[in-house]
């Protein structure tokens, strides 16, 4: 019987080595595998390369905490703003940064999971991010060569998971999670709900179980609310 559910977070994270590359899902506060990241931050691992859209937000939660604990040697991301632990580590020269346009980051991960080693994109052509790099003119337009990204580990947050590792997501929590699940050599999922096999309708499966190695049940609750409309109009 295939059963990818593990009993706890420690088992979910077992076997990760110093120097591992780690894909981290999430955009804003939504879809972040924070329970896995918090535990990874407490593991004492070092020299991780983390691939994520941002570089964390809260200093004591998730990726911000992982960086604050000194586990990360390099960040590959599109928007490393709003993270005090990243800022401090970067200023002190303890962390390396590779900035990648957001769509290029997504496509490099998608390509990695899909077995495509590289591709050409129009994004960043003619900018300082393209300096000294290979470009090619195709049908009269210039494109920049970008290489695929895979990683030793992918950390994913899902809404529902079954024992085969089939996944669904909620709202904008999908973001990078499905493509990272495909690009990780060991894909570890924290799921809000574990459901019986067959409970997710075949039409509704977003990430197929073959991309997933381990699932741990983390009923973490809702992300914080950032903004609501006011009675007078506008928002707060």
């Amino acid at each position: 019987m295939i059963d990818k559910q593990v009993k706890d977070i420690a088992e979910a994270l077992s076997g990760i080595a110093n120097g591992a590359s780690v894909l981290v899902g999430g955009f804003g506060a939504v879809g972040q595998p924070n329970a896995l990241l918090d535990a990874l931050g407490d593991s004492g691992l070092t020299d991780l390369t983390v691939i994520a859209n941002n570089a964390g937000f809260e200093p004591d939660i998730g990726l911000g905490r992982l960086i604050g604990k000194g586990c990360v040697r390099k960040m590959i991301c599109s928007f490393p703003r709003g993270s005090s632990t990243f800022d401090a580590a970067y200023k002190a020269g303890r962390i390396e940064l590779e900035v990648v346009p957001q769509g290029t980051l997504a496509e490099r991960i998608r390509a990695g999971g899909a077995g495509v080693p590289a591709f050409y994109t129009p994004a960043a052509v003619g900018t300082q991010l393209a300096e000294g790099r290979e470009t090619r003119v195709i049908d009269g337009r210039e494109y920049l060569l970008e290489y695929a990204l895979t990683a030793d580990i992918a950390l994913v947050e899902a809404w529902r998971a079954d024992r085969w590792g089939n996944l669904t997501y909620r709202g904008s929590g999908r973001n990078f999670n499905p493509i990272m699940a495909m690009a990780g050599r060991l894909t570890i999922v924290q799921a809000q709900h574990i459901v019986p096999l067959g409970a997710i309708r075949p039409d509704d499966v977003v990430t197929q179980g073959l991309f997933v190695n381990r699932v741990v049940h983390v009923p973490g609750g809702d992300p914080p609310v950032s903004r609501v409309a006011t009675a007078e109009g506008g928002a707060k």
Partner: peptide
């Protein structure tokens, strides 16, 4: 700045070419 201490690009480069 060409020497931005913490460069951050987001999706602007993809949006503006696409």
């Amino acid at each position: 700045s060409f020497n931005d201490r913490v460069p951050a690009v987001g999706g602007a480069m993809d949006l503006s070419v696409g």
